[in-house]
Design a protein around this nucleic acid. Structure first.
Length: 199
DNA sequence: CACAGGATCGTT
DNA sequence: ACGATCCTGTGT
């Protein structure tokens, strides 16, 4: 059975992080039998962004952020959740896009099993839920989305309109970074975490 | 080596 | 509003 959409080439990721973030909406995330369509993302800048994991420079955990765009950066949070990011830009820019919400496309039976049969948008709205549904864990950090066979990004169907707002859970950042409107979601979709604060 | 805290989630 | 739960970065 062919994959839904063609594999996205490496050049896609070599643009400013907010541009790639918007362009990721509507693309397909694929792993094994599961395909998810991206509906909500957040952009994180390099060392100068006080909300980003890159703010402390290169560490063992965030090393994939310093790779060339197209790399996966996965980290473990709050002792129980995995967070999936798409690294962007040339090497050493350390920018990444957090995948916050998706809608199901294929492999729904497996997604429902992994998500304990939660009903409605609560199934996939939130970064921890997306990673759990896809089956992504730390073993995937450092892998490349444009190389076939593993965690892949494919064409999908683009978002017609996009809403933006401040990022979630970054109250610790400086005011300028806290207020930067770098959360993006497809307009009108129910597959979004915290629909408030978007316009 | 010890410790404080986190780009969250689900329940109370 | 809060507890779960453990990896991570930082400091001693």
């Amino acid at each position: 059975m062919p994959r839904p959409g063609s594999l996205i080439p490496a050049a896609f990721y070599l643009r400013p992080v907010d541009v790639v973030a918007r362009d990721l909406l509507g693309r397909h995330l694929c792993l094994g039998p599961v395909t998810l369509r991206i509906t909500e993302v957040e952009a994180y800048g390099g060392p100068q962004d006080s909300a980003s994991h890159a703010r402390s420079g290169r560490t063992p955990r965030n090393a994939p952020m310093w790779e060339a765009g197209g790399c996966a950066y996965v980290y473990f949070c709050y002792g129980m959740h995995h967070m999936l990011n798409v690294v962007t830009g040339p090497p050493d820019r350390a920018e990444a896009v957090l995948i916050r919400s998706c809608e199901p496309v294929t492999g729904l039976d497996l997604v429902l099993e992994r998500r304990r049969h939660v009903q409605g948008p609560a199934l996939l709205t939130g970064p921890g839920k997306v990673a759990q549904a896809l089956g992504v864990d730390l073993a995937f950090t450092g892998t490349r989305f444009h190389e076939p066979g593993g965690l892949e990004l494919r064409a999908g169907s683009p978002a017609a309109a996009i809403l933006a707002g401040p990022r979630v859970g970054v109250d610790f950042a400086s005011p300028a970074d806290r207020d930067r409107p770098w959360r993006f979601a497809e307009a009108g979709t129910p597959w979004v975490s915290r629909p408030r604060n978007l316009r």
